[in-house]
Design a protein around this nucleic acid. Structure first.
Lengths: 222, 222
DNA sequence: AAAATAGTGTCTATGAGACAGTATCGC
DNA sequence: GCGATACTGTCTCATAGACACTATTTT
């Protein structure tokens, strides 16, 4: 830690904003305002503002607010991508985050975001393709062992909706009976009393639930 | 991504080097050569050298080699720690890694490393205490679902040694029969034929094994 | 009654923990 | 034989998946 003669790399924060659209996991992209890759759609990102951001999470919140209008949504650090070649401007570090947002919340707040299925994101600037892949991987992996996927739903949801989210996140069909049993064993949800509702084509009204804790991690698979 | 007028933060790489000493998980620390916190023992770290390091992993390899003499050991990115206050010199980013090394390898190569049990690391400079805690957490968590703990053993080891490593990493006793059954079901090891050996106080010679793949992740607990 | 979704019960296979039992060595 | 470690077999219980069954609503 002696040699401060070395030039400092560029440091940015990049956010993989994920949501569910038509039963598919999608990433929200933003047309880039400046060079390099101007006008190309890329991950939501920006520089750290040393004067106003106390830490990287502050920068994430600020950038999300400024560039998408979103506020108070779930996000978590993924990892950093650091190399000489990832940015044409020179040696750079991207501290990557992924964020989860329910589609209705995204639609209410969003400026001009472009949604693309994570399976066919098209061509992305920098190493954003790699960052996206890492985020999806993390969500799929951690999704089976936590309540992460529920962050893609509104606060209040039905058991079927929850199961459906888990199915698209994990990428496999789940048995209804086993799913309900596990969820109830894990004691993650609380019933929203009196609030029954009928889903679109449903006949029988459904019990509604909400999460007890923001994020729970358990040690068996859903 | 427009405002390049903002000052660039300091970027360093910090490595939590873990090994097993007397059945305890220990972190290897290095007395700091320069201010701040000169002479205090801290994590192994350094600046990125934009000219010689192509990416952060290159920097990790170079720093490990220079500061400890170690080469070719296992390491993996943890996450980054970035804030205005973590370093008295100003806004800084530490890309944190953790590395695992067998004790004999560490002893053969090491310069003047200080080993401290991760449970009582003493006072550490910067936020190195927090980084250490995150590394231990990751190892404990991922350890139960992967062959990570085997990186704390030499290439060739006995089943008992492997079980013992898992026990200290996970922090609980494991049933011998179940352990062997699971390891063999997962098909992770290959027998080192003809090579039998007697452990210190053992009577009956033991079969020796090596890992088939560097790191495997499975989806049930060991 | 039929259609459609909500929710429950049960059977079976598999994997885990507990623990006893057998094997092979040095002394 | 005894002590010590290496290794195997078996019993029982918990959990998972499969799938059939019941429940409640609208049309």
């Amino acid at each position: 830690m002696t040699d401060e003669q070395f030039p400092r790399p560029i440091v940015t924060v990049d956010i993989v904003l994920l949501t569910l659209s038509d039963e598919r996991l999608c990433v929200a992209l933003l047309p880039r305002a400046t060079e390099p890759f101007q006008t190309f759609a890329g991950l939501i990102g920006g520089y750290i503002h040393a004067d106003e951001d106390q830490d990287a999470e502050d920068a994430v919140r600020r950038i999300l607010k400024q560039k998408t209008g979103l506020d108070g949504i779930f996000f978590e650090q993924l990892r950093s991508f650091a190399s000489a070649k990832r940015d044409p401007r020179g040696w750079s570090v991207s501290i990557a985050y992924f964020a989860l947002v329910p589609k209705p919340v995204l639609e209410a707040a969003a400026h001009t975001l472009e949604l693309r299925p994570v399976t066919e994101p098209g061509s992305l600037p920098f190493d954003h393709g790699e960052i996206l892949a890492a985020a999806v991987n993390r969500l799929r992996g951690k999704g089976a062992y936590s309540t992460l996927p529920a962050r893609l739903l509104p606060d209040i949801f039905t058991m079927s909706e929850l199961q459906s989210i888990y199915e698209t996140v994990i990428g496999e069909r789940l048995d209804q009976s086993a799913f309900r049993r596990k969820i109830s064993d894990l004691n993650l949800l609380e019933e929203v009393e009196g609030e029954k509702r009928q889903t679109e084509r449903a006949r029988r009204p459904t019990t509604l639930y909400r999460l007890k804790d923001p994020i729970s991690v358990f040690n068996r698979r859903i």
